[in-house]
Simulated assay, not measured.
Amino acid sequence: MIVNLLRIRFKDGVTVEEQEEVLAVMRRTASLEPVAFGAVGKDFGNPADGFTHSYLAAIPDLEALERYMHDPVHISGDELILNKLEQMSAVRFTDDSDPELGNAVYEIAARKMQQYPDWARRIDELFGAHV
Rank of each mutant, 00 (worst) to 15 (best):
F51K: 01
A30D: 03
G38N: 12
K42H: 11
D49A: 15
A64R: 05
F37T: 14
V91I: 14
Y55M: 10
A64H: 10
L56N: 06
G50H: 03
A109C: 11
R28Y: 02
D49I: 03
T29D: 12
D71S: 02
N103E: 14
A57Y: 04
L85P: 00
Y106K: 13
L56M: 12
L56V: 13
H70D: 10
I75D: 03
Y55A: 11
N83C: 05
F93C: 08
E100A: 15
E86C: 02
S76L: 04
E79G: 00
H70I: 00
H70F: 08
A110D: 13
Q87N: 11
N83A: 09
Y55C: 04
P72W: 03
L56E: 07
G38F: 10
L32E: 04
S31A: 14
T52E: 13
G41D: 08
A90M: 12
D95A: 09
L23G: 03
N46K: 12
I75G: 00
D78I: 01
D95M: 06
Q114E: 11
P60Q: 02
F37V: 12
L82Q: 06
A57E: 08
P60R: 08
E33P: 00
P34N: 11
A90D: 01
G102D: 13
V40N: 08
A104C: 06
L85S: 04
G77N: 02
A30M: 10
L62N: 03
S31I: 01
I108M: 06
Q87V: 02
N83T: 05
S97I: 07
V25H: 08
I81C: 01
V105S: 11
L85Q: 01
H74T: 07
S31W: 01
A90L: 13
D61E: 05
G45T: 06
A36I: 07
I81F: 03
A57D: 04
R27S: 12
D61I: 00
L65I: 03
H70T: 10
L65D: 05
D78R: 09
A57P: 02
K112C: 07
P72N: 09
G38P: 06
Y68C: 01
H70Q: 08
N83K: 08
N83R: 05
T52D: 07
L56A: 05
S54N: 09
A109K: 13
G41V: 12
F93V: 07
I59D: 00
G50Q: 05
P72D: 08
L65G: 02
S76V: 00
L62H: 04
V40S: 11
N46I: 06
Q87L: 11
E33Y: 11
D95P: 02
R67A: 13
S76M: 03
F93Q: 04
Y106M: 15
L82R: 06
A90N: 02
M113E: 14
H70N: 15
A24D: 15
F44S: 13
E107Y: 01
A104Q: 14
A104M: 05
T52I: 10
G50M: 09
